[in-house]
Amino acid sequence: MSSIDYQLSQLDLLEAESIHIMREVAAEFERPGLLFSGGKDSIVMLRLAEKAFWPAKIPFPLMHVDTGHNFDEVIDFRDRRVNELGARLIVASVEDAIAEGLVVDPTGPRASRNSIQTVPLLKGIIDNKFDAVFGGARRDEEKARAKERVFSFRDEFGQWDPKAQRPELWSLYNGRHRQGEHIRIFPLSNWTELDIWQYIQREELELPSIYYAHRRPVFWRDNMLMAVTDVTPADEGAEVFETEVRYRTVGDMTCTAAVESDADTLDKIIEDVAASRITERGATRADDRASEAAMEDRKREGYF
């Protein structure tokens, strides 16, 4: 670092802010947990946590809400990464919640377990007595998120009340809560999709292979490219074809679509993202298409 220029680059600034947030949480909460899905945002979050506490280990466990409908490549990656770090992984399983009768497995041709994830998520938080839960959401993703605080209060039902949010000033974060309540922590609030990709490149972070262009059988559904899998068989009458695709987000298979792309390196992906004219959620998330306020409604109930 040169000694004349005291201006940090945008990635260094974002990194410093996120590390500051993570250390605040480690210092002020008794039982934090970090939501790790194996997706690009949580991969970045994990690297930031490594940096925040180096050379010590990350001082909290990771939790994954597993719908049972995840891409194999992502689950393999998740387990490998957790092993490397010597971290503890808690899996909050949607299948278990279904087996226990807490939620009903949606059925029908376009059934998705996405919306019922909130139940095992909140159960995982209660069972592990988490008082702070790190999430990888970004404000540029969606307009309800654009208004959410970095420290976002949740009542004992896990609910978010957008009208009763605490003002958040300077870098002073208020984590006060009573027993049973918790705070969702969003250290990536100010990152954009492009920042995430540039950081992945700078830090040389490994990603699940499905983020890179690969060939697979797909079909069109509502203008989105869905992979043909056990849980998403092709719709009746839909033409199945093989083409080169990659994923911009890696959520549950039933509601995550691919984009046509030949970007098989980080450089090409960054070029793609910079030129993209569609938001990542708009392009690939069936869950957000339900209505203008789909995300806001889910968030109120306790969703990520």
């Binding site: 309800a144 954009t192 806001e296």
Partner: peptide, 29 residues
Amino acid sequence: TDGLRAEREQGITIDVAYRYFATPKRKFI
């Protein structure tokens, strides 16, 4: 820039919202 349902319904902006844009020179929040 009008994010939340309540705001859309009332046609007013009720809270701080964060927006992001970048030019080749700078990133802006």
